[in-house]
């Protein structure tokens, strides 16, 4: 899950933070850790809700509404906890923390878990893998982009377009991991 079906490069989830936060290496690492944490908590709680509330009462179609509320609540709680316990980390994460709510990778992994009918343990593991894959790619990408800033790119290519082409090459490299399965 972490490298073969990478969240960003093969499922295209979480692209907004991928291109938004990957300008500096330090930000990329903290963002990756925060996303992994929220993903893990969200997967566990949503799979508990799915298996013990939605399925017994036959209301699986409510999953989108429920999951998005669970994720929003979780992000708030994580934000409060980090603020109380570690103020430095809170300041470092800044605006990126509340933005995790609208990160499609988080909602995506919970929806994938229920679509695949994973048990609670399986969803935890898949969320951990997905989060680590996200962090890995984010860190690699930000390393490349730090160097890319120094390069002389054509004017209309500067910024996002060249970032996309970089991502294309990165995705090509990750495609090679397919052979591992």
């Amino acid at each position: 899950m972490a490298v073969i079906n990478n969240m960003v490069l093969s499922k295209f989830l979480g692209l907004c933070p991928f291109f938004g936060v990957s300008k500096k290496l330090s930000n990329a690492i903290s963002m990756g850790v925060a996303v992994t944490l929220v993903m893990l908590l969200a997967s566990v709680s949503s799979s508990v809700i799915y298996n013990y509330i939605l399925v017994p009462y036959n209301v699986e179609y409510m999953q989108i509404v429920i999951y998005i509320l669970v994720i929003a609540a979780l992000v708030q709680i994580v934000e409060l906890i980090i603020k109380r316990t570690n103020l430095n980390l809170y300041n470092a994460l800044g605006i990126y923390l509340p933005l995790i709510t609208t990160n499609c990778a988080v909602l995506g992994i919970t929806l994938i878990n229920s679509a695949e009918n994973y048990s609670i343990l399986e969803s935890t593991v898949s969320a951990l893998g997905a989060g680590m894959g996200f962090t890995l790619v984010l860190v690699i990408m930000s390393g490349i982009r730090e160097k890319l800033d120094l390069a002389d790119t054509p004017e209309s290519m500067r910024g996002l377009p060249i970032a996309f082409i970089t991502a294309a090459l990165l995705a090509l490299a990750f495609l090679g991991f397919n052979g591992m399965m």
Partner: peptide
């Protein structure tokens, strides 16, 4: 997937 990134870029 790499093609997608390239085309949109």
């Amino acid at each position: 997937s790499p093609g997608a990134f390239l085309v949109i870029g």
